[in-house]
Computed example of a mutant assay.
Amino acid sequence: MKTILTAAVTAAAGFSLVGEAAATEWNVSVWGKRRAFTEHVEKLAELVSDKTNGEFTLNISYGGLSKNKENLDGISIGAFEMAQFCAGYHRDKNPSITVLELPFLGVNTLEEEVAVSHAVYGHEAAQKDLARWNAKLLMTSPMPQYNIVGTGEPRDAVAEFKDMRVRATGGIGKAFSAVGAVPTSVTATEAYNAMESGVVDTVAFAQHAHLAFGTINRAEWWTANLNPGTVNCPVVVNTDAYEALSDAERTALDSSVDEAISHYLANYGALLEKWDAVLEEKGVTKVMLPEAELAAFRATAADPIREQWIKDMEAQGIPGQELYDLVVKTLEDTRAGN
């Protein structure tokens, strides 16, 4: 944490410090460019500054502090105070929260994604998991179900996924692998080049990322209803920096999370409303897979991958079944509340 000191000086022989006021400045590591995926971080910075009269500021860096796959490492050593990362980038470093990346969880809305994410983040196992990296889970970056853009003939049957080279991470990558596709986990910033050079045929992203990283500009078709899952991308803070905040600063930060998320949801909702117009403008064909094909995909990928994940977690001493059950119960409770 960087503290800026302002002082009055006297004109006597030498300089004398007669008064000072401290301002807290945090560095925040994200990547790419400002987009729907980062709007809650931007809003959080605005709210925190407003609530502290500018005495606590978040300086957001888009790639200037760290590579996206190294943000958790940077948090662990205190290279910066806040960062965004995606669980699928390094599953071994954050195994507990990869429950949220399991395929076909049945999450239907961004609000449901927020609910299940924050429920898992609040679980002791997840907090203990991230504490190994001196990281405190602050908020999620909710994304809708991923779908793929591709080149060539549209793929509207599971059999056509065989040997398809797809940019997909985490549970989504495992789901595609289960039906014979060949997933690669190139980062979001590398996806366009991978598509352009032919390293991949297709790219799995949420809508904002297809726009932000330009993959929609290479696309000839887009699956509108595949919905294999999503990626979970938390915003975390360095624990030491968080504990070093004053009570007022900590309150300003914590109390701003819900409003920042609400702003994100509203902004993302506006993007989704114009998505069909984007597809039409760019001449991208919308592909709707028949329900029988979707059912075949789920049968092949969902249950086996979930059961293996639970088994793997339990072997590491992580309560995999409990975490999965928490997601299911949270979904039920959220829907009942609505």
Rank of each mutant, 00 (worst) to 15 (best):
3 T>N: 03
8 A>C: 08
14 G>Q: 09
17 L>W: 10
21 A>H: 08
22 A>F: 10
25 E>M: 03
30 V>T: 07
31 W>P: 00
31 W>C: 05
32 G>K: 13
34 R>P: 13
37 F>Y: 14
40 H>C: 04
41 V>Y: 13
42 E>S: 01
48 V>N: 13
50 D>C: 01
53 N>K: 11
54 G>E: 07
56 F>D: 03
65 L>D: 09
72 L>S: 01
73 D>C: 06
74 G>T: 13
79 A>H: 05
81 E>K: 06
81 E>H: 05
91 R>E: 09
93 K>R: 10
94 N>K: 07
94 N>A: 13
95 P>R: 01
100 L>F: 04
104 F>W: 06
107 V>D: 02
109 T>N: 00
110 L>R: 12
112 E>M: 11
116 V>G: 02
116 V>D: 06
116 V>S: 05
121 Y>K: 00
122 G>S: 11
124 E>C: 02
125 A>T: 02
128 K>M: 04
139 M>Y: 08
147 N>F: 06
150 G>K: 01
154 P>D: 10
157 A>C: 07
161 F>S: 01
163 D>L: 04
166 V>E: 05
172 I>S: 02
174 K>Y: 04
175 A>Y: 10
176 F>L: 03
177 S>D: 07
177 S>C: 06
182 V>I: 15
183 P>R: 09
185 S>D: 11
187 T>E: 12
189 T>K: 12
190 E>S: 11
193 N>P: 05
195 M>V: 13
199 V>F: 05
204 A>S: 15
204 A>D: 15
206 A>E: 15
207 Q>Y: 13
210 H>N: 15
213 F>V: 00
216 I>W: 09
226 L>R: 00
226 L>Y: 07
227 N>W: 06
229 G>N: 10
230 T>M: 08
230 T>H: 12
230 T>I: 09
231 V>S: 12
235 V>C: 06
241 A>F: 02
242 Y>Q: 03
245 L>C: 07
247 D>T: 12
250 R>C: 01
251 T>H: 14
251 T>L: 14
254 D>N: 09
258 D>P: 07
261 I>F: 06
263 H>S: 07
269 G>M: 15
274 K>M: 00
276 D>N: 08
282 K>G: 14
284 V>Y: 14
285 T>H: 15
287 V>Y: 09
291 E>D: 02
291 E>G: 01
294 L>T: 00
295 A>S: 07
300 T>S: 01
302 A>E: 02
305 I>S: 04
306 R>I: 14
307 E>T: 07
307 E>D: 14
310 I>D: 04
312 D>F: 05
313 M>L: 14
313 M>G: 12
316 Q>C: 00
322 E>W: 10
326 L>K: 03
326 L>H: 06
331 L>I: 13
331 L>R: 06
335 R>L: 11
